[in-house]
Design a binder for these strands. Structure first.
Length: 492
RNA sequence: CGGGGUGUAGCGUAGCCCGGUAUCGCGCUUGGUUUGGGACCAAGAGAUCGUCAGUUCGAAUCUGGCCACCCCGACCA
């Protein structure tokens, strides 16, 4: 049948693409570098949005929306930020098309409609937002400002991969303004923890919290924090970032406030974001050769009920049982699908829902009708068991919770087995080539050593972990002293 | 942006070297038999062969330009 998935071990990137396409999550559009997120994939994004949005609200943030266009002069105000994104910006230069006199039926850019100032399509929104905050902030009483926006951004990528890297993607970006450095720093870490919490509890994805090295830092930030996850092929994926911006943007956009003492000072800022890239991480962390495996907390469908029937009458009797179970589960807040299509066989449906990662499947056939039972199957382990109709609905909540935990534990075990301590550069290279995963090694803290290691091994410092014990040692590259190990990996 | 490759039905492809209006599979439509792990039979519909030009009696096939996409590198969430 046309639904075969390339095995992970044979070709990991093809396996990934097969899942994205065959689970009906997204496809390449006819617009270069841009994807179409299909309903099933978008449902997962909506689940992510719902979970994160609640966490943002619970930490005092509110949503707002800022323009997709940023005038070039505004964009370039914070120099480092502008420089960092300059190479991947899309620019609007004209505002009108007209009929092409040389080419009937075709349109051309109207040369008379050139914009006086070009508009940058936002690759991120610090510029427009800080430009706006300037108008909103006069006094310490106006602070803090705790705003998030759900938006699309454009980064003109040369090479794209569905969800992981596309020219346009969806994300959220939080932008906060504070009266003190301490408060902004706390906000930065608070949101990092929100992301870690979300990754671990919703996505069932264990992450390492850390700081970025100077070379990997967000352009314009004083400090960048991140969560790093490990994919099944041993490569790392940055799953979220939170930046302490210091007063950089406040200075660039002249955002000052009067303190209690009447003195003027620049505002302290943060920004933080996660994107649809998380969906890519979700796929690569959990799925197998049969398709997607979704953690129940992000699954658009929690339970699918598949009837096995020969006649319409049989379907009707099964439907009565199925609807009862579905109704009970829906009352408990679960999304249940009863797939009563008569043009596909049960086996086809089993395979299809496995491909789509639906956590739990209930099959009901004539034998079950006779016995008052159903067949219960879980996606994560593929285990099947027979249960009484009367008890099945009550079993689902704990089963879904168990699946959520199991997926997390499995990913954690994998990460642990793929995390290696090394003390020499030889071992470092060997582990990267033969095993992959996270490599914990000493580093002297210099840009030069970091760059040289990246150049020679393609591994980058994913982060300087926050919870690591201090431990004196010698940099694997330079031999200079080091106070703690950092996390190296090859990354997406 | 460098290096390589590919464009033929909704998808995946054969045919191209050696010119004669296009093959097969999946999917789709209709009818029938099926249904506890991706059913089968029969009959259908569906392609100006990426695009523009050239050579030729005749071009998917030969020649040239253009466009698009994919893979490998540099850059990146």
């Amino acid at each position: 049948m046309g639904k075969e998935i390339t095995p992970r071990l044979q070709d990991y990137s093809q396996w990934y693409l097969d899942i994205v396409k065959k689970a009906d999550m997204a496809e390449n559009s006819d617009v270069r570098g841009c994807m179409v997120i299909k309903p099933y994939g978008y449902s997962i994004w909506e689940k992510m949005q719902a979970g994160l949005d609640k966490m943002f609200k619970d930490t005092g943030h509110t949503n707002a929306y800022f323009p997709v266009f940023v005038p070039k002069s505004m964009f370039e105000a914070e120099e480092k930020n502008a420089e960092g994104f300059a190479k991947e910006c899309a620019i609007v230069t004209h505002y009108r098309l007209k009929n092409d006199p040389q080419n009937k039926g075709k349109l051309m850019v109207d040369p008379d409609a050139k914009l006086e100032e070009e508009l940058v399509v936002r690759p991120t929104s610090e510029a427009i937002i800080w430009n706006t905050y300037k108008k909103w902030i006069q006094s310490y009483r106006d602070l803090p400002i705790l705003i998030n926006q759900w938006a699309n951004v454009v980064r003109w990528e040369m090479r794209t991969r569905l969800f992981l890297r596309t020219a346009e993607f969806l994300w959220q970006e939080g932008h906060t303004a504070h009266a003190t450095a301490k408060e902004a720093e706390e906000e930065t870490v608070r949101m990092l923890n929100v992301y870690a919490d979300f990754a671990e509890n919703f996505m069932a994805l264990p992450v390492i919290r850390g700081r970025k090295s100077e070379g990997e830092r967000f352009p314009g930030a004083i400090e960048t924090y991140c969560i790093e996850a490990l994919m099944q092929d041993g490569k790392a994926l940055q799953a979220g970032t939170s930046h302490f911006l210091g007063q950089n943007f406040a200075k660039a956009f002249d955002v000052q406030f009067s303190g209690k003492d009447g003195k003027l000072d620049h505002v302290w800022g943060t920004s933080w974001g996660v994107s649809t890239r998380l969906i890519g991480g979700l796929i690569m962390a959990h799925s197998d050769d049969d398709g997607l495996i979704l953690p129940p907390r992000l699954a658009p469908i929690h339970v699918v009920i598949v009837p096995i029937f020969k006649t319409e009458a049989e379907l009707a009797s099964i439907a009565a049982v199925a609807e009862k179970i579905a109704g009970d589960l829906r009352k408990l807040g679960y999304a249940v699908k009863f797939d009563n299509r008569d043009n596909q066989k049960p086996g086809y449906k089993f395979a299809e829902y496995e491909l789509k990662g639906v956590p739990v499947r209930i099959a009901i056939g004539p034998r079950d009708l006779e016995n008052g039972t159903v067949e219960l199957a879980r996606r994560d382990t593929k285990e099947k068991s027979v249960k009484q109709v009367s008890e099945v609905a009550a079993l689902i909540p704990s089963l879904l919770e168990e699946i959520q935990q199991n997926i997390y534990q499995r990913a954690l075990n994998f990460r642990n087995s793929m995390t290696t301590h090394v003390d020499t550069y030889e071992d470092f290279k060997k582990v990267l080539d033969e095993k992959g995963g996270f490599v914990l090694a000493h580093w002297d803290g210099s840009k030069e050593s970091e760059a040289a290691i990246k150049e020679e091994t393609k591994a980058t410092i994913r982060c300087i972990p926050l919870d690591a014990a201090s431990e004196s040692g010698k940099c694997i590259y330079s031999g200079k002293p080091s106070v703690q190990r950092v996390v190296f990996a090859r990354a997406y």
